[in-house]
């Protein structure tokens, strides 16, 4: 699975062959967890989360989104026009996931890879990257704020999958992450299979927590946020944390006594969440993402925030073809 990133050599040239390969991968990547984990996560301290509750959806197009149709131009009466009238884009983000979306205590500003992607969307909408109104949400709130119409977009390490597509829409994939484990510096574990009998933390309402249930010999511990897991880890209340490598990289940056081990054992395609009805908004966001992927902005953002994970790979290929 570590090879997933290199399996996308294409530069957004949408030939039929690439499309077929990517769709095949999507089947593997996006829907993998739900295929094998159809029931809610039976963790000790967890109530069924909205993401895990509905019957597992079967689909082979978790990363397939709506193709852009009008570029970044805004037509009157569209969702984007309404947002322009309002004057700001309301976005659901994390304020404590270092590197992806976290509040910088020095400046008080929320910053990270997810946040910069949103700044690009704001720039396209308003000609000003800072017309963002942040709503800080937990992982478990991501679907609710979208279905409840409280935000225009959610950019919060949001894995695209079939279950979620039933309630909301996603943009095209904008980052490919994979689930790994974080352990103490002196641990001999080299992967999740070495953590039998140990307490492993993951945030509520995430695919990460769902996937832990595939390891019945591991004691799953749920926290409200990723960073809540780090606090528990530092207090010795859990032995390890599992999460996306993007998130874990942020933890290692905060704690020199932690290390990330093993290969990614899942592929987590990140998409920007949009209320299901706002198909025009999805198309608009995709136009912005395509632009960033091709003009080098994406690579610059990756280097700025996720350079610790290695040199920037090629941006994930946008997959289109979904119809409302």
């Amino acid at each position: 699975m570590t090879t997933t990133r290199t399996r996308h050599p294409g530069r957004a040239r949408r030939t039929a062959a690439v499309l077929a390969a990517v769709v095949g991968l999507a089947l593997l990547a996006g829907c993998d967890p739900t295929d094998t984990a159809p029931s809610p996560t039976p963790t000790a301290s967890e109530t069924p989360s909205p993401t895990a509750a509905p019957p597992a959806a079967q689909c082979d197009d978790a990363t397939t989104s709506y193709a852009p149709d009008a570029g970044t131009s805004v037509t009157p009466g569209s969702t984007m026009a309404a947002i322009q009238d309002r004057g700001s884009l309301v976005v659901g983000v994390s304020a404590d996931t270092l590197l992806m979306g976290s509040r910088n205590p020095l400046t008080g500003q929320i910053e990270g890879f997810d946040i910069d992607v949103l700044h690009e969307i704001s720039r396209a909408l308003f000609g000003d990257p800072d017309r963002l109104q942040f709503r800080v949400i937990t992982s478990g709130q991501r679907l609710d704020v979208l279905t409840g119409g409280q935000v225009d977009l959610v950019a919060r390490t949001f894995t695209m999958n079939c279950d979620r597509w039933q309630q909301i829409a996603f943009s095209a994939e904008y980052l490919r992450s994979g689930q790994k484990v974080l352990v103490t510096r002196d641990s001999t574990a080299t992967g999740i299979d070495d953590l039998a009998g140990q307490r492993v933390c993951a945030p509520k309402g995430t695919t990460t927590l769902d996937r832990l249930s595939q390891h019945p010999d591991i004691t799953a511990v749920a926290a409200d946020t990723h960073t809540g897991c780090l606090a528990l880890f530092q207090q010795g209340k859990v032995d390890a944390i599992t999460g996306d490598d993007t998130v874990l990289a942020g933890f290692v940056a905060q704690d020199p006594y932690a290390k990330v081990v093993g290969d990614a054992f899942s592929a987590e395609p990140y998409g920007i969440g949009v209320p299901a009805a706002n198909v025009d908004m999805v198309r608009f966001v995709n136009a912005v993402l395509d632009q960033a992927k091709t003009d080098g902005t994406w690579t610059a953002l990756y280097d700025r925030w996720l350079g610790a994970l290695g040199p920037a790979p090629a941006p994930p290929t946008s997959v289109y073809g979904r119809t409302p």
Partner: peptide, 16 residues
């Protein structure tokens, strides 16, 4: 201490 170093985990400790 975490906040002073710019680490967001400080917020988790404040919550606790």
């Amino acid at each position: 201490a975490n906040n002073r170093q710019g680490f967001p985990v400080g917020a988790a400790y404040l919550d606790q």
